[in-house]
């Protein structure tokens, strides 16, 4: 027998809660995103392809996704390490550090952008140091990389932390009793347990980094073909009133993001099966 669309319930408020939910969802999310897809459909795949298929746009998409992937990978390793330090070690100021991890969520991206630029520009505190050592951070791809690490920093820490809290010490002790070195225990017992949560954090950090605009444009330098991120190109197309061009880049970013998240989701399911819980 087919499940009914909605089960009867004695709890009142179905009409009003469903009404508010579906109305606001349609107006605020579905209508605008639908308009983007409709514009894309009206322009047609050929038109979209000619808009996207220029060296400058490919360069920006490649830059955005490559640096976002690298920054999310950095945050994957760093986030697991930080979550481990916060969860297992006791040191003065631990509470403060724990609270500060969420700073990139609370600090507006434009503020982060100008602050990072002030520090890492050639006349800034860290930038001057780098200049003396013979390299440049702000206005290069390294600068973009640093800004993307900043915005994605909390994700992996926050997804991995609860898992570390739940690991039973007995598991590690059993591993040690069976003759494993500490390193072996970490590699073969602890890290596999953290992998699914860490991958969730990685995916969130990646999605955030790909779309990031505010913290990047100040430090990027925004040179076409070199330090121009994809979201900036949407803004440039809109300023030229080239709505089809902007639509094409917007849809290209959506498609690439969804494919990447789909792949990560697959890896996650696989890693979860491998260690035995569904």
């Amino acid at each position: 027998m087919r499940r009914p669309l909605i089960h009867r319930s004695p709890i009142p408020g179905l009409g009003i809660s469903a009404g508010i939910t579906l109305t606001l969802l349609s107006l605020v999310v579905l209508l605008p995103i639908g308009a983007l897809l409709l514009n894309g459909a009206l322009a047609g795949p050929d038109r979209l392809w000619t808009e996207v298929n220029t060296p400058r746009i490919w360069a920006s998409l490649w830059l955005s996704f490559r640096l976002s992937f690298l920054a999310a990978a950095f945050n994957l390793v760093f986030g697991v390490a930080l979550a481990w330090v916060l969860g297992r070690y006791r040191f003065p100021g631990r509470r403060l550090i724990d609270a500060a991890v969420d700073l990139p969520f609370a600090l507006p991206t434009a503020v982060a952008g100008i602050a990072l630029t002030a520090l890492y520009a050639p006349n800034g505190a860290f930038g001057a140091l780098a200049r003396d050592l013979g390299f440049k951070i702000a206005y290069t791809q390294t600068g973009i990389f640093i800004a993307l690490i900043f915005v994605g920093l909390p994700f992996v820490v926050r997804t991995v932390q609860p898992v570390i809290d739940e690991i039973e010490r007995e598991v590690e002790e059993a591993s040690a009793t069976l003759g494993a070195t500490r390193l072996h225990t970490i590699r073969h017992v602890i890290l596999p347990m953290l992998a699914p949560a860490a991958l969730t954090g990685f995916a969130l950090a990646l999605a955030r980094a790909v779309g990031e605009y505010g913290s990047v444009i100040f430090i990027a330098g925004n040179l076409p073909m070199q330090t121009e991120i994809a979201p900036l190109l949407i803004v440039i197309k809109l300023e030229e009133f080239n709505y089809e061009g902007a639509t094409a880049i917007g849809i290209a970013m959506l498609v690439i993001s969804f494919v990447m998240l789909f792949v990560i989701n697959g890896v996650q399911v696989w890693s979860r099966r491998r260690i035995g819980y569904v």
């Binding site: 669309l5 469903a18 999310v29 605008p32 308009a35 983007l36 994809a230 709505y243 639509t247």
Partner: peptide
Amino acid sequence: YDFRGKAFLITLIDLPFSVSPVAVGLCVVL
């Protein structure tokens, strides 16, 4: 309440998190 398509509804609610803010602005303009 129990109804069909609940997971899909939650996915739709979460959708804005996976769209670039600039693309969100573009959607409003379009």
